[in-house]
Design a binder for these strands. Structure first.
Lengths: 117, 117
DNA sequence: TTGACATATTCCGATATGGGAATATAATCG
DNA sequence: CGATTATATTCCCATATCGGAATATGTCAA
């Protein structure tokens, strides 16, 4: 097998920076494809292809509006990513770094206890 | 160009579920490779390969210990993912969903105001 | 209908992938 | 030293990718 398809997951879909850019642009609200083309300065077919991937993973929804297709963010599909990475948040939070300092202190004290050195 | 290398980003590195499993296992603390092999029930070469990717992206660190190599999580490298996805958190938070209800109410009222219907 | 606009799909090529299997490197033990 | 343990690397292959270019589909307007 090769690398998992981009349409497997939100994780895989969002690994592509252009697709994150698209989502960031859609955060402001529903937009037609050409809006995104202008905003991101990408060829239209590329944008359509990226949108297809995002749609297949459920992170965007589409709505027909005359000859336009309005894309809208569906944040729910990003929740698994958030839920996963959230477990590591403490590893860089300030409070945790403070805790680190305290633990270092304790360790040093403990060692001081053991010997007379 | 093809898809971005897995070693480009934390985003790309972490798109592979086995690599997330490895990180989850390392969350409990430093571990030698064979521990991971047993825990994840994967062939040892695979684990080593995944670890290489994770190392290149900086999400794990290694330390030599005799004939073992102890891998340790480096959460900081995951912060960009957290920072990005965090902006969307409100889209599925309960408070936001409550707000949605309120906004719907307002809209309905407004429409009721406009006409006599 | 014909034309203009908006979007989607298809074909192409270069590339990196993850898995399997085999093997290489490195460190320790007797 | 040779044997064993722990880990890393290499080779092979099937596959999906992104980008570019061209083209297809769909919708409105005159």
């Amino acid at each position: 097998m090769a690398r998992a398809a981009t349409t497997t997951d939100a994780f895989n879909a969002v690994a592509e920076p252009r697709r994150r850019d698209i989502l960031d642009a859609l955060a402001a609200g529903e937009r037609p494809v050409n809006d995104l083309v202008r905003l991101l300065d990408l060829p239209q077919p590329q944008v359509s292809k990226h949108l297809r991937v995002l749609r297949e993973v459920g992170v965007v929804d589409v709505r027909d509006a005359g000859r336009q297709r309005l894309y809208r963010l569906n944040g729910h599909a990003l929740k698994p990513i958030h839920d996963w990475v959230r477990n590591y948040e403490q590893l860089w939070s300030e409070r945790f770094e403070q805790l680190d300092v305290v633990l270092e202190d304790l360790k040093r004290k403990e060692q001081g206890d053991g010997g007379d050195e």
